[in-house]
Design a protein around this nucleic acid. Sequence first.
DNA 1: CGGTGCCTTGAATTTATTCAATGGTTGTGG
DNA 2: CCACAACCATTGAATAAATTCAAGGCACCG
Lengths: 216, 216
Amino acid sequence: MLNQSDTAIDARAVSRNSNDLGQGDGRVRVARLSFLQDQEIFPQEVPATRLYRVLSGAVRTVRLLCDGRRQIGAFHFPGDWFGLSADGAHRFGAEAVSDAVVEAYPRSVLTLGGAAGPCAGPENAIVLQLARAEDHLLLLGRKTAEERVAAFLCDLNARGIRELPMRRQDIADYLGLTIETVSRMLSHLQRSGLVEIAHSRSLRILKEDALSTLAA
Amino acid sequence: MLNQSDTAIDARAVSRNSNDLGQGDGRVRVARLSFLQDQEIFPQEVPATRLYRVLSGAVRTVRLLCDGRRQIGAFHFPGDWFGLSADGAHRFGAEAVSDAVVEAYPRSVLTLGGAAGPCAGPENAIVLQLARAEDHLLLLGRKTAEERVAAFLCDLNARGIRELPMRRQDIADYLGLTIETVSRMLSHLQRSGLVEIAHSRSLRILKEDALSTLAA
DNA sequence: CGGTGCCTTGAATTTATTCAATGGTTGTGG
DNA sequence: CCACAACCATTGAATAAATTCAAGGCACCG
């Protein structure tokens, strides 16, 4: 079903290299990893030993219910940190949405710099991730289907994403909807002239204000 | 509407005292604050300057949509940390569910101990809060009304809470449902003999396994 | 005793889902 | 090059789930 298995070994071809994190505390070992579309980066419910950062492509965090229902916790794009879940075990697994390259850091980088470091570091990423999760709670708990889709497009737009790397099923599982509902709402937003989505994938916001108003 | 206003000043009667946090880094100034039921502890969208811990009572974190829709992010009980949202601004405000006493710490305690400290510290609380938020994402995005209510009761039970301090409206806003649906589901769980709820408030789990199975 | 606030229950309605069919694109093999 | 299969997205109609609307009950308080 997923194009893993045989090609996975080749895809995981790992090139390790040392790298200075810039915190003055010596060098940190960083692994660079490549993944094919839909390949698993780390599974759900496994001890979180490393932190990751997206270099290229896109990553989703995924959680499955025993009967197959799926929730996507977040999408991560180049520059974004992920895998900071819990120190005990990841609540969500991580998978490549498209072919992707990520860097893996030892967990120790979290406590390297303390509060003094630059704002782009992983310490702030944890707080950013919590903020994103809390925003998403509001969306899932209280917004309508149309508001969810509008908010999703606004968020992508704000993050500079102009090409949807994920399938409708991913969007649906992120927004707590079905693919059909997502599709209907996208069609509706297009008919209303707020956005334009070519070939199901390329995103163009035509009326940004109206869209963000709709996103509630 | 809320019993704030006049009595608020009295209620906020603050007793400050010095306190050793146990991290060996000297003493930290801790304020002890009391709040009446439904009183605001800190508002939504305000810089997060302090960390809080519940001493007694219960606290909810709240976020409002402009049209009045409300989402509760979490409930906090004695021993729980809260207010760790973002360093920029709180995504959620905090309010007392019942009369409550909390301790307020300076934000600096977050970086005091690093990774070496005991597991009960605020550093782990941030990660715990993220884990809770992620669990809640799954609940809001993919669970049915009955599963949500069952999961809520299971969670309270696991945290040792046997008395519901919050109103039905709070439960509804936490679970992304309406009060009527919450009430119906509670009635249904009682008719099924899984739980017993006396006087709308006291919680007794009769079939823990069955309930947690229902919680999915 | 009457009033208020909160909870519960039933019926009607709405929203999103499920079921079903169709269209478009891509890649493969004849 | 075209036919065909596989996969994904879209659309319509029927269904199910939760909400909204409405009424009534219970406890608490002045």
